[in-house]
Amino acid sequence: TGEEYIAVGDFTAQQVGDLTFKKGEILLVIEKKPDGWWIAKDAKGNEGLVPRTYLEPYS
């Protein structure tokens, strides 16, 4: 389980392990790392690192 967040901007993977997403996408945050990069999963089940500055809590 995780917390749902909504993307407030588009993000394109910079390196292997990053997750590309579009503004408005709902992501499930699995782990919040202290460096500001969180592990998240998208609706298709893809998992990767995302920058927390692009996310806001979804309710």
Rank of each mutant, 00 (worst) to 15 (best):
A40F: 02
T1R: 05
A40S: 03
L55V: 06
I39W: 15
K33G: 12
F21N: 00
L19C: 02
G45E: 05
G9F: 14
K22F: 09
T1F: 11
G48K: 01
Q15P: 03
A43G: 12
I26L: 09
R52Q: 14
W38S: 01
D18C: 09
P51F: 11
K23T: 10
D35H: 07
I30M: 12
D18S: 11
E3K: 08
A40M: 11
G9Y: 15
E47N: 07
P34T: 15
P34D: 14
Q15G: 13
W37D: 05
A43T: 12
V29K: 00
L27T: 01
P57L: 12
P51N: 15
E47F: 12
T1Y: 15
G9H: 15
F11C: 05
K23F: 07
Y5W: 13
D35M: 04
K22Q: 11
A43H: 14
K33N: 12
T12E: 13
Y54F: 12
P57D: 06
Y58M: 14
D42W: 00
E3Y: 09
G36L: 06
K22T: 10
L19K: 02
T20M: 04
G24K: 03
L55R: 00
L27Y: 02
L49G: 07
Y54D: 04
A43R: 11
T1C: 10
E4R: 15
T1G: 13
W38K: 00
G2L: 13
Y58E: 05
L55Q: 00
K23C: 09
K33T: 10
T20C: 05
V50H: 00
V16Q: 11
P51T: 04
I6T: 05
L28N: 07
Q15N: 13
I30A: 03
T20I: 04
E4S: 13
K33P: 07
A40L: 03
W37N: 07
A7F: 02
N46Q: 11
L49T: 13
I26M: 07
V29C: 03
E25H: 07
E3I: 10
T53D: 15
Y58R: 08
P51E: 08
L28R: 10
L28E: 07
A40T: 03
Y58Q: 07
K23M: 08
K33R: 14
G24H: 06
L19Q: 01
F21I: 13
L19P: 02
L55D: 01
G45Y: 04
L19N: 01
D42M: 02
T53V: 15
K23Q: 08
L55S: 00
K22G: 06
E3R: 07
T53P: 06
V16M: 13
W38N: 01
W38A: 02
A43V: 12
E3G: 08
G48A: 02
W37G: 05
P51R: 07
Y58P: 05
K32T: 05
L27G: 00
L19A: 01
S59T: 15
E56K: 14
T12H: 14
A7Q: 01
T1V: 11
A40R: 00
Q14A: 12
G36M: 06
D35S: 08
W37Q: 07
G36Q: 05
G45F: 04
E3T: 12
T20F: 04
G24M: 03
K23E: 08
E56Y: 07
D35A: 04
G9Q: 14
K41C: 08
A13T: 05
E4N: 15
A7I: 02
L19Y: 01
D42R: 02
S59C: 14
S59Q: 14
L27W: 01
A13K: 06
T12Y: 15
P34G: 13
E47S: 10
Y54G: 05
F11Y: 14
Y58V: 11
E56T: 10
K22P: 03
E56N: 06
D18M: 15
V16T: 14
L27V: 07
L27E: 00
E47T: 14
N46C: 09
Y54N: 06
V8L: 15
Y5H: 06
G24L: 03
F11T: 02
T1P: 12
L28H: 11
R52C: 13
K33S: 09
F21Y: 03
K22N: 09
P51I: 05
L28S: 07
R52G: 12
D35Q: 04
L19S: 01
A13G: 15
V29T: 02
I39Q: 08
V16E: 12
G36E: 06
L28Y: 11
P51Y: 13
T20V: 04
S59A: 13
R52K: 12
A43W: 12
Y54H: 15
G45L: 05
L55W: 01
F21H: 01
Q14T: 13
A13V: 03
Q14N: 12
K23D: 04
K44F: 13
K22L: 08
G45C: 07
P51S: 08
T1E: 14
G36D: 09
R52S: 14
E3D: 08
G36T: 04
W38I: 02
G17S: 08
P34L: 12
I39F: 13
A7P: 01
I26N: 02
E3L: 11
P57Q: 08
D35N: 10
L55P: 00
G24S: 04
W37E: 05
E3S: 11
F21D: 00
E4G: 06
Y54V: 14
T20Q: 08
S59H: 15
L28W: 13
K33A: 10
G36C: 06
K33M: 09
I26K: 08
N46L: 10
P34C: 10
Y54K: 14
P34F: 11
N46A: 11
E47W: 09
L55T: 01
P34R: 05
Y5C: 03
V29A: 02
V50A: 10
K32P: 04
W38R: 00
L19E: 00
W37V: 07
L19F: 03
K44G: 10
G48I: 02
L28D: 04
E56M: 14
K44T: 10
L49E: 05
G17Y: 05
G36Y: 05
E31D: 12
K33V: 07
W38M: 04
D42K: 04
Q14G: 10
D35E: 07
K44M: 14
V16R: 13
G45K: 04
Q15M: 12
G2C: 09
V50T: 04
I30S: 06
D18N: 10
Y58A: 11
T12L: 13
D35F: 05
